[in-house]
Amino acid sequence: MAERERRPSPTKASPRPRPPRPEEAARHACEQLASLIVHEPEGVCGVTRHEDGWVVSVDVLEVPRIPDTTSLLATYEVHIDQLGELQEYRRVRRYRRGAADDC
């Protein structure tokens, strides 16, 4: 009797990872930025969707001062890919907490 050849069962394709939602992208950006710089992020002031991921603007307290309105903050632009991984970051602005925006 001829032996039947066993064929491997078809494997399910692993599901494609879902791109992060805006709030997830913002959280990933803050966490990953904090692990690279010595200052803690204070908050997110912008999230923009791009074809290859997200650009998140993160405000960071760089120099705390008394009174608090004279503290120095910075805005970092953080690029996150489709998987939520940091691709690059850069400081785009540094300002006094009490200063008004230049418009």
Rank of each mutant, 00 (worst) to 15 (best):
70 T>P: 00
88 E>W: 01
65 R>D: 00
20 P>W: 10
72 L>N: 09
8 P>L: 01
15 P>Y: 08
102 D>V: 02
83 L>D: 11
48 T>I: 08
4 R>S: 11
103 C>S: 13
34 A>G: 09
48 T>V: 10
66 I>N: 04
36 L>P: 02
42 E>K: 14
71 S>H: 10
63 V>D: 03
88 E>A: 15
19 P>E: 13
45 C>T: 14
76 Y>E: 05
44 V>Y: 08
88 E>Y: 03
101 D>G: 03
25 A>Y: 07
25 A>N: 11
93 R>W: 11
17 P>W: 03
25 A>L: 07
90 R>C: 13
64 P>R: 05
88 E>D: 15
7 R>Q: 14
48 T>P: 00
35 S>N: 10
23 E>F: 10
15 P>I: 14
47 V>M: 02
93 R>H: 13
35 S>M: 07
58 V>H: 04
7 R>G: 06
97 R>N: 10
57 S>F: 00
73 L>I: 02
11 T>D: 10
91 R>W: 04
66 I>V: 06
55 V>E: 01
2 A>Y: 10
23 E>L: 06
66 I>H: 03
21 R>T: 15
45 C>D: 14
100 A>T: 12
102 D>N: 07
30 C>A: 14
25 A>S: 10
12 K>P: 01
10 P>G: 06
5 E>N: 10
93 R>V: 02
35 S>A: 15
22 P>F: 02
15 P>T: 13
1 M>N: 11
24 E>L: 07
93 R>C: 05
99 A>E: 15
29 A>P: 01
64 P>W: 01
17 P>D: 09
72 L>I: 14
66 I>W: 02
52 D>C: 03
76 Y>L: 13
76 Y>K: 08
99 A>Y: 01
23 E>W: 12
46 G>R: 12
70 T>F: 08
17 P>V: 00
75 T>P: 04
71 S>W: 04
75 T>N: 15
80 I>Q: 06
102 D>Q: 06
3 E>H: 11
42 E>Y: 01
7 R>L: 13
75 T>E: 15
91 R>V: 03
80 I>H: 03
41 P>W: 04
18 R>I: 11
60 V>L: 07
45 C>W: 04
54 W>H: 10
14 S>T: 13
81 D>L: 08
67 P>C: 12
25 A>F: 02
77 E>C: 06
41 P>L: 05
